[in-house]
Nucleic acid binder design. Structure first.
Lengths: 121, 121, 121, 121
DNA sequence: GTGGTCTAGACCACA
DNA sequence: GTGGTCTAGACCACC
């Protein structure tokens, strides 16, 4: 995995795991990779992984069991909400920025339709 | 103006000015606010404004004349390209993120249409 | 039983047993639950129960007989002292913390009286 | 300052600052010692101070300004609530533990009155 | 083996 | 000078 230089690595790790949760690759109760294991895999310092896991725990998306590991929350709604929340934030941000550029609604529609066509090819 | 804590303030200032250029509030040759004035207005350290102006200059969007101030580039194409470039980056980023969430094309269309309707109200 | 995440589980187990000793639910010579049994009941790793029992033994509150199990000490004074010691520690700690908050003596009296009234209801 | 071995240092640092806020030694808007300065004073690694400050920020008790420092929240209520919350937690915990020891209400009153008399001396 | 904390030391972004 | 992130490496508590 390559990390983007603009965003702290631990945030990118959080996003990576959130993505997997949203995509159903990690489900409620699944064990996350251990800190050490994941740090080897991502070639990142264990402390950095640790930091990411802790922040995820604070967000209620994972929980840890002493000496056992870190696990995806059992709270199904939390995962559902996560997807919705992430999508909403994305779309809100997109529209906000679009407006800042002074792009009109019809223009957006057109651009997006074009993009969708391109993507299909 | 409120600043977002995730992004460096000088970048937010750059974006602010770019927006105004794209929206036609700042046109080729217009004088930007002086560093001192702008820093008072935004309640921001003058160095931070300075930094934003410098970066804008590096991007070729503004130029400075000693003792006169900082001005929007006369290069009309630069501004046009700016709009296109910003829009493209925005849309590319949006699609990339949307896909990460595993949202399907048709779903995007639906969500966006709904949003557009909401916005009209 | 729910465990508090701030305190090691084995300590919480020790406290649980101490409470029962102080309350007279466990008396001198009584057999504690077997490690296996207790671990099932509390849904805790047997090693953790084991650790708690060991520490209690180090404190002289229980003793083990090979193959027979773990038993509450026959030493009546030990249990009496335990209650006094625990109460003293509790009260000392409480007063120390209260002072740290800058709460005055009269205020303490008032607060506690109120609490006692509430509890009676 | 001496640190207790049972509690993470960064938590003890948080408590130290909370105490000062509650006692009125730190008031809304006051600048906390810089991370480096405080780390020298307490003979603790800067990262540890940093961690404490971050957690305080997450609790809404302090805020940081990029490049400027870390400051006590301007929110007066937050500080008032802090005192109340800390006192309530303390008292709740105290009563809970007292009950676990099977100590009766009248006994508590007596013990506390004795303590108060001792403290006056 | 698992997470949690801490240190020492470095580099960066920001004011 | 200020906070923020990261690494390397250590030690601890717990399971």
């Amino acid at each position: 995995m390559e990390f983007n230089n603009n965003l702290p690595i631990y945030i990118q790790i959080m996003n990576l795991i959130k993505s997997k949760m949203v995509l159903g690759e990690f489900n409620g109760g699944d064990k996350l990779p251990s800190v050490r294991e994941f740090s080897k895999e991502l070639k990142v310092n264990p402390n950095t992984i640790q930091r990411g896991y802790q922040e995820l725990e604070r967000e209620g998306l994972v929980f840890t069991q002493r000496g056992m590991g870190t696990f995806v929350t059992q709270d199904v709604d939390a995962i559902k909400n996560l997807k919705k929340k992430m999508a909403d934030e994305l779309i809100d941000g997109f529209f906000k920025e679009i407006k800042k550029l002074g792009i009109e609604i019809d223009e957006i529609k057109k651009i997006i339709s074009e993009r969708i066509e391109e993507d299909k090819e």
